[in-house]
């Protein structure tokens, strides 16, 4: 579905991505893009979302180069949630979510009843139906995250790109949100590619983990393969042990060392 071929990108001379090649298949999977801060995760997502244009290399979606896609047509198929959205003026959740239908609207047409129905559905899918009439600035961070996820889902995209969806959430909400992502993949058949610097939560419910380091893909495999003490030591430079519970591996830093 999405294929990056030798993609490089630099911010005013500083390389963020170096010759990255990955392929993401459609048909519903949860893929984590893990790595430390500054490893190139956000840049990769921005390029896939057409927010940035690849400096070098080529990106394909459904076999067509990204610049051959009409921006709106692309936006119907690929949803993107930036790490932070700051809405300057007060807005209710339903207005926020229905704005996710924008790529489907004609130049002069406003959202119709079916757009509102899809927005309500998306809110329900994110366990946020009860927030519909609430204003964003009256919500907790976790609630706001769910509303913005619903906004992405309102367009029913095939590929969903999420930049650090767990950032600024406490552990209970990270858990809740991870399960929510898993659930959405299972129920909608969309493929979710999410960036996270938190190894444990990146691994917890994903089928696949792409680990980035210094603008390169360091590892692209299953979570179980990544979540091993020797791999973590080599990739991230800290000593840790792995605890396995219910078939999931958790990394625990070795603080005594």
């Amino acid at each position: 579905m999405l294929r990056l071929a030798n993609v490089s990108y630099a911010y005013s001379g500083v390389a963020a991505l170096r010759e990255v090649s990955i392929a993401v298949e459609g048909g519903g999977s949860l893929i984590a893009l893990a790595g430390q801060n500054g490893s190139g995760k956000s840049t990769l997502l921005k390029i896939a979302a057409r927010v940035l244009a690849a400096g070098r290399g080529e990106v394909f979606f459904e076999g067509r180069r990204l610049d051959e896609w009409q921006p709106r047509e692309y936006a119907k198929l690929v949803g993107y949630l930036p790490q932070e959205i700051d809405v300057t003026f007060p807005m209710t959740a339903i207005d926020v979510v229905v704005s996710g239908r924008a790529p489907f609207l004609g130049r002069f047409s406003w959202e119709g009843a079916s757009d509102y129905a899809k927005a309500e559905e998306a809110l329900a899918l994110c366990d946020a139906a009860h927030l519909s009439a609430r204003f964003l600035d009256e919500m907790s961070g976790g609630e706001r995250k769910r509303v913005f996820l619903a906004r992405v889902l309102a367009g029913a995209p095939k590929l969903i790109l999420l930049d650090e969806p767990f950032a600024a959430l406490d552990i209970a909400h990270v858990q809740q949100f991870s399960l929510l992502l898993r659930d959405i993949v299972n129920r909608t058949g969309s493929t979710v590619l999410f960036a996270s610097h938190d190894l444990n939560w990146a691994a917890a419910y994903s089928e696949r983990m792409i680990v980035m380091r210094q603008g390169l893909v360091a590892l692209d495999t299953t979570p179980a393969e990544v979540m091993r003490a020797e791999v973590v030591r080599e990739l991230f430079g800290f000593a840790a042990e792995t605890i396995t519970r219910d078939g999931r591996s958790w990394i625990v830093p070795n603080v005594s060392e």
């Binding site: 921005k46 979302a49 057409r50 927010v51 009409q70 921006p71 709106r72 047509e73 692309y74 936006a75 690929v78 949803g79 993107y80 930036p82 959205i85 700051d86 809405v87 300057t88 003026f89 807005m91 926020v96 704005s99 996710g100 924008a102 790529p103």
Partner: peptide, 16 residues
């Protein structure tokens, strides 16, 4: 009106 959500977001939604 899509700019209310930020420029990156608007770009990802097909806005020039």
């Amino acid at each position: 009106r899509m700019l209310a959500f930020g420029e990156d977001d608007a770009r990802a939604r097909g806005v020039d």
